[in-house]
Amino acid sequence: MKKQSEDSNEKKTEVTGNPQIPVNRREFLKTAGRFLALSVLGAGLLKFVKLKSPVTVWQIDPRKCIHCGRCATECVLNPSAVRCVHAYEACGYCKLCGGYYRPNASQLNTAAESQLCPTGAIKRTFIEDPYFKYQIDEDLCNGCGKCVKGCASFGNGSLYLQVRHHICVGCNECRIATRCPAQAISLVTTDQAYWKES
């Protein structure tokens, strides 16, 4: 017992016997380094980094979109955060809708063999002769863009693909954007979060 305490005493002297200067020097160096790091961070951020206060979100530019269908398959989410949006203002309410019917549909009815949408997400309702309203059930839509292609080539282009922000998780690098053949997806500020009619 006594021997042990002697041992620890020895250790203690070793500790205290250690010259104070290196410790101080180390402390000083550390403080200097800290201030250096602080100033580097601060100056770097102020000088080089372009800050923007509003937050940005990913969005598809429908003018560039070629409705290739990758939005449905490349999103990190399943089903994709990209869904079809219908701009009623631009819709022609056509009886023969290029976005609703298959190109060679023999009958203009709501049967499965006539419809273009693979998930049956477009609802067609009669308004008055010869006009029909087309409505998208977003829960069923998977963003494949088949109807968008149809509407763009045979209609007014009132159907278009958009990243739905309540679904999108806002990846730092959008996976669809990296795979988009038309480079149509980019970051926009939240006030331009959706493409709308005038």
């Binding site: 049967a111 499965a112 063999e113 693979p118 998930t119 049956g120 069923l140 998977n142």
Partner: peptide
Amino acid sequence: DIRALDLLARKAYF
């Protein structure tokens, strides 16, 4: 046939 298969496929998907 198409209608049946379409229904099946959509069911399978969801």
